[in-house]
Design a protein around this nucleic acid. Structure first.
Lengths: 168, 168
DNA sequence: GCTTATCTCTAGTAAAACAGTAGAGTATTA
DNA sequence: TAATACTCTACTGTTTTACTAGAGATAAGC
């Protein structure tokens, strides 16, 4: 039931770009995105290109270039991103909504394994299709602030503003 | 988020052996287990050996040999079987209960991706660790009977008895 | 005690997926 | 025009997956 490294990185890039955007830094270069956790640059570049092609990200070349989120964050569900990068959420083809495939059981209607895996696929989809990038970003920011941890990717100004905005 | 073919086959074998047992056929040979859906015999044999080694199955060689379920079915959870064959349920190492591993984020406590994947892992575990083989088998039998479908692996006698027992 | 049916053990293997690397090319800006 | 940064394509090493093959051990029945 694994998420691939590629999927993990892809989601992480979106979340980090989302956080940066909220903190007043809409553009981040591949270098900025990879250096902190020192992730493999060229591999990340491929993933970013895929996310761009799918319409989630935009990019600008040259000096002052970088990637930025193009689609409104509250319209990007985590589920669709995972499907894009890692394929269907379902543990087994015969319960996939997006990519059904018959499996080895001769009688799907009376297959106990299938019933079980249908429950699992629904449980996963209920979480991943419900959460949007906006949700994840805002929850993360709230948590960082509550614990007085440091904000990544932020200008000092933006953090001050954010502290005020988020203060009850 | 895939279940491997190996995992699928393993669960299917347990369920089929469970059904057969309920229908009065405690022993099934590899041939019987594979012929209906013509699954690869030798591959299945390896999986059955693994399930035997783990204590779920027993086996008898020679004429009148075959596999049978050794552990009480209501003490075998689906989750433990999946973990045995396919490894941890968690989509990402840093949220695994049974096999924790740090991941690429520098600060787990404030990682949005981790929070999300923790939800997913809990949703999966809540299903797979709650259902036992006994549950799956009894639900399957009930369904087959309700739809008047044919019982696999059954002697005529056993089916008749079962029809009576299950009739309200 | 021989034959037949069955599980058991070990090794090998082809193909795909995974996780990157490498490098030349193109666009943008100061 | 120099520097910066994305882009495109190809390649590669490792691991996993899904088997296949075959010899060996064991049990039942004649």
């Amino acid at each position: 039931m694994k998420l691939s490294k590629r999927g993990e990185y892809g989601l992480r890039m979106l979340i980090n770009l989302g956080i940066a955007q909220e903190l007043g830094r809409p553009h981040l270069t591949i270098g900025e995105l990879t250096e902190k956790d020192n992730l493999p640059e060229k591999f990340i570049a491929q993933i970013l290109a895929q996310l761009k092609e799918a319409g989630y990200l935009g990019a600008r070349r040259g000096k002052l270039g970088g990637y930025f989120i193009e689609k409104p964050m509250n319209t990007i569900t985590i589920g669709e991103v995972v499907r894009l990068i890692d394929g269907p959420l379902a543990p087994i083809g015969c319960v996939s909504q997006s990519a059904y495939e018959p499996c080895t059981c001769p009688d799907e209607a009376h297959c106990g394994l299938r019933m079980l895996m249908l429950d699992v696929r629904n449980a996963i989809a209920n979480i991943l299709d419900r959460y949007t990038l906006a949700d994840v970003v805002s929850v993360t920011l709230r948590k960082i602030r509550r614990d007085k941890a440091s904000f990544p990717f932020a200008t000092v100004d933006a953090v001050n503003v954010l502290q005020e905005v988020l203060t009850p």
